[in-house]
Design a protein around this nucleic acid. Structure first.
Length: 259
DNA sequence: TGCCAGGAAGCCG
DNA sequence: CGGCTTCATGGC
């Protein structure tokens, strides 16, 4: 029997600093997929049959606490596990950072960096379609505009809920984008080419040819990257970005780029 | 005003 | 493979 509770606690690893990760999540005011309020993350999350506005906080530093602000708690055991998996992925809780920290603390260049950002994880975009879209949005335009594109996209094709008079948006489903024409999608001031990329990607996901599970089953990040690059609209940069920000290959992050 | 931004595809040799 | 052109829109 599943006990009906108001909140779910998820234990966090030793090397984890919730506030530092919140700072990262709060880095851009144009972000439309979540907000940070008073040491908590407010985020609409859709997993399985659950679609709710979730508050994530850390009342004590050994666990994250999930509270449902609007919608409902996951009703089935499956949905509850999907939610927990999503949050674990979001904060990259499954990665063991001990080996990296041990190595970094012996490196004169990395030492200061690791201490300054101790407990900061590579925050993920757990949803593959969302990560892919964000990669495409950001290609060859300034970030400010990329955030604008995402917002217009989300508010035009996504669904929403209202909480305390404020509207929160879920990321659009790929099935919906797959059915759009280039002309329709281009209305939000994306280039035709970006529209083509996104519709093509949405179609691949709708047909089931492309999925996060399938990519992860390939195992080796180099092989995954090769697979991703065959998709029109995904080049080396976006493929690498996906490995790092969605597929959890945080060890592959470019140390050259640390600055 | 002009350069350029979290690139990638297409074409040519 | 390596280099060059095109795409197209805001930001600063």
């Amino acid at each position: 029997m599943v006990a009906m509770t108001d909140s779910i606690d998820i234990p966090v690893p030793d090397i984890f600093d919730f506030d530092r990760n919140l700072v990262f999540l709060n880095r851009n005011e144009d972000e439309c997929m979540h907000e940070v309020i008073e040491r908590s993350l407010i985020k609409p999350i859709e997993v399985g049959s659950m679609r709710s506005l979730v508050k994530i906080s850390a009342p004590h530093d050994t666990a994250l606490r999930l509270t449902i602000l609007a919608g409902s708690m996951p009703e089935s055991k499956d949905d509850q596990e999907l939610l927990i998996t999503y949050i674990k992925n979001l904060f990259d809780l499954n990665t063991d950072l001990q080996p990296f920290y041990k190595m970094a603390k012996q490196d004169p260049l990395l030492k200061d960096l690791v201490e300054e950002y101790d407990g900061l994880r590579i925050v993920q975009i757990p949803d593959l379609f969302e990560a892919l879209c964000w990669g495409v949005f950001g290609q060859q335009i300034n970030l400010r505009f990329a955030y604008q594109l995402k917002r217009q996209f989300v508010e035009k094709y996504g669904e929403s809920l209202v909480y305390q008079g404020k509207t929160y948006w879920f990321f659009p489903h790929y099935e919906k984008i797959a059915s759009l024409s280039v002309e329709e999608l281009s209305e939000i001031k994306m280039t035709r080419r970006k529209s083509e990329y996104m519709i093509g990607i949405a179609q691949l996901m709708t047909s089931g040819e492309l999925s996060k599970d399938k990519l992860l089953q390939l195992g080796d990040p180099a092989i995954i990257e090769k697979d991703l690059v065959t998709i029109r609209g995904i080049g080396p940069w976006t493929a690498n970005y996906l490995l790092m920000r969605c597929l959890g290959f945080t060890s592959a992050f470019p140390i050259d780029d640390v600055g």
